[in-house]
Design a protein around this nucleic acid. Structure first.
Lengths: 189, 189
DNA sequence: CCTACCGATCGGTAGG
DNA sequence: CCTACCGATCGGTAGG
């Protein structure tokens, strides 16, 4: 899946052939069919890995009681997760039109649930008075955009995911980070 | 170009065939070759339209003297531009791997210049004390992410680009918008 | 996990 | 701007 993600990131889903994926794994194309039924299933496996990883780590964070701390954790979560797995999320975010129709409903459902966690955190922070804004959905999408976008520009030679995450938290919540919590290494790239 | 952008947005560049583009224009595929030399050239035309439109409107905004006002204008510019032309910018942002190698250097040059205008505006606002942050590049990319991301989720039936733009400005600069400036209608979708 | 191969799609051209 | 057509690529299968 990680190899497929890298191939699809570099060439796009259609142009990235199963011959390319197999070559990167030092095998022949037909051998891949021992593991997957079709190229479409392989793409779905990549999508599923992305959304499942994201949701699993989110679940524990969503239980934090202090609204501002919870939102800060969600912001760091998305920035660090995407920054650490650029090829996985490049495919997830940019190859949506190639995903087979039979998977899209499930994917959209999980994504809506994901966005909802951010909307809820934003609402809680707004009612606590830490943040002023009219539309929590706009704020949540702005946050998801500023953090997710990192896969488009991050250069691992110079940019530290944790430092970028801290910048995002500061921009939204206006507080300087003192003791950023440790994130577990969770990279597929 | 607008039709091609819509086809490539819906199906992706490779899966969106010239037969599809031609059908949407009520012609035959071969007729397209009167206007473009190749499918790759058509894609480049879409890319060029996106970056050129973005840069042209940016040029006038970049001359504003007040740093905070200038940054606010840049934020609104990107949010409204992308929100109004989702198919154009979906192709521009997500079909990069399909762009022919001979165009990528030019595109990256223009993009760097574009990002630089945001970095500069952020630096000026920071030295003015309106915003506190260590790395202007992180802040600029965060701003470009929160605004550009709008093409992924905007629903024109319920979401107003200008209102979202105002939310972004408020999140970054913390001031409530009173009299948002009118933007010219500039939509290709 | 391999070699050999088939069939559909699709970018592109000929010629009008 | 059209009809007719070619050739390459590539997902997928047969059979081992």
């Amino acid at each position: 899946m990680a190899t497929a993600a890298r191939v699809f990131q570099a060439r796009g889903y259609d142009a990235g052939s199963l011959d390319d994926v197999a070559a990167a794994l030092d095998m022949r194309k037909s051998s891949l069919y021992y593991y997957v039924r079709s190229k479409g299933e392989l793409l779905h496996l990549v999508f599923d890995r992305a959304i499942t990883t994201a949701i699993e780590e989110l679940r524990t964070l969503a239980t934090m009681s202090d609204p501002a701390e919870r939102l800060a954790a969600l912001i760091r979560h998305q920035a660090v997760l995407v920054a650490r797995n650029p090829s996985l999320f490049t495919v997830f975010f940019d190859q949506r039109p190639s995903l087979d129709d039979r998977y899209v409903d499930d994917m959209r459902r999980k994504e809506r649930q994901y966005v909802h966690a951010y909307v809820e955190a934003v609402e809680d922070v707004i009612s606590g008075g830490v943040l002023a804004a009219d539309d929590p959905r706009f704020v949540a999408q702005a946050i998801l955009g500023m953090t997710s976008w990192v896969y488009k520009w991050i250069d691992h030679a110079r940019d530290d995911p944790e430092r970028f995450a801290a910048t995002c938290v500061q921009l939204i919540l206006g507080t300087v980070e003192r003791d950023p919590p440790k994130h577990q290494a969770n990279s597929f790239d």
